[in-house]
Amino acid sequence: MDDILRRIAGLGPGRHVVAIAGAPGSGKSTLAAELVAAVPGAVLVPMDGFHLDNRLLELDGLRPRKGAPETFDAEGFVALIRRLKQGGEVVYPVFDRQRDLAIAGAGRVAAQTGLVVVEGNYLLLDRAPWRGLAGLWDLSVMLEVPAEELRRRLTARWQGLGQSPAEVLAHLENDLANAETVAGRSLPADIRLTNV
């Protein structure tokens, strides 16, 4: 983390937007929260607020694939990052994992915020419209975790949310498929970290 903090310190004055990308269960949220805690006034903006609602996913037959790139409002997310780069106050949605839904207008980046740390699976995805994010990051970090460790972490996550064994297995299959997408279809990051 020290290397990331040094790189952030070297970005200079003004607002900067840093991407923390990686597969589900790679530790993105933890690293992003640690960075925000280490930089006074920094704000964390998770990509998960742009999950499409379950009703829309069901209409499109995508409910079992929730968390895949096509199950997000990617265009809306890219627009949010552009707004963040412009500066000023920005309001954004936040995902409630317990309730499995996004809450509109639940987060705010104040006008004076200098550092915004964004975390999510597809921040470097080389696929439209996600590819539109490529020139917006002031610094990008990709977390890499061996497949077996990801499997262990994700199993514990879903068990901790009270899911049945069958539900855990379904979530696990989906998460690992999304992890393969992140590993195989992402653009290069400024910093790559192995998080075991």
Rank of each mutant, 00 (worst) to 15 (best):
L187N: 09
G88V: 07
T155R: 14
R127S: 11
R152L: 10
S186G: 08
G87Y: 07
L136N: 13
R108I: 15
R152Q: 11
L101W: 09
G120P: 02
G41T: 08
G120M: 03
A21C: 05
G49Q: 11
S26R: 02
A19D: 07
L136T: 08
V109W: 07
V116Y: 07
L172P: 02
V145R: 08
T71I: 02
D100N: 14
L154E: 02
V118M: 09
G87V: 06
L31I: 10
L150P: 00
P69G: 02
L161D: 06
A23T: 00
D3S: 14
G87R: 10
I8F: 05
L11I: 09
V94L: 15
R6I: 04
R127T: 04
L172N: 01
R83T: 07
V18Y: 08
E144C: 13
A179N: 00
L31N: 11
R192M: 13
L56M: 13
P93L: 12
I4D: 09
G132C: 02
A179H: 01
A37T: 04
A110W: 11
G10S: 13
R157K: 07
T181F: 08
L101R: 15
E149C: 03
D190S: 12
L62W: 06
P69R: 00
V168Q: 09
D73W: 03
V116W: 06
R82F: 01
A170Y: 00
V78R: 01
L52D: 06
A33E: 13
E119L: 02
E75H: 05
L59E: 15
A68E: 01
A38S: 14
G88Y: 12
G160Y: 07
A183V: 08
D60E: 14
P46D: 10
A183T: 08
L59Q: 14
D73A: 01
F72S: 05
R152D: 09
E167T: 03
G76R: 03
H16S: 15
L84T: 05
L31K: 13
L161T: 10
A134K: 14
K28Q: 04
L44V: 01
R82Y: 00
D96K: 07
R157P: 02
N121E: 02
A68W: 00
I191H: 13
R131E: 12
H171N: 12
D126I: 01
H16G: 15
N195M: 14
R152A: 11
L52I: 03
A156Y: 03
G12S: 10
G41H: 05
A19R: 09
L150W: 00
G87I: 05
A104V: 10
R108A: 15
A23F: 00
V36Y: 07
R151G: 03
D3L: 15
I81G: 08
L56F: 10
T30I: 03
G162W: 01
A189D: 13
S29V: 05
Q163T: 05
E58R: 15
M47E: 11
P64A: 10
D190C: 09
E173H: 03
A179R: 01
V39Y: 06
A21K: 03
M142I: 02
E34R: 15
G25Y: 01
A189G: 12
R83W: 09
G88F: 10
G132K: 04
R157M: 07
A32S: 11
L52S: 09
F50Y: 15
W158R: 06
A147F: 04
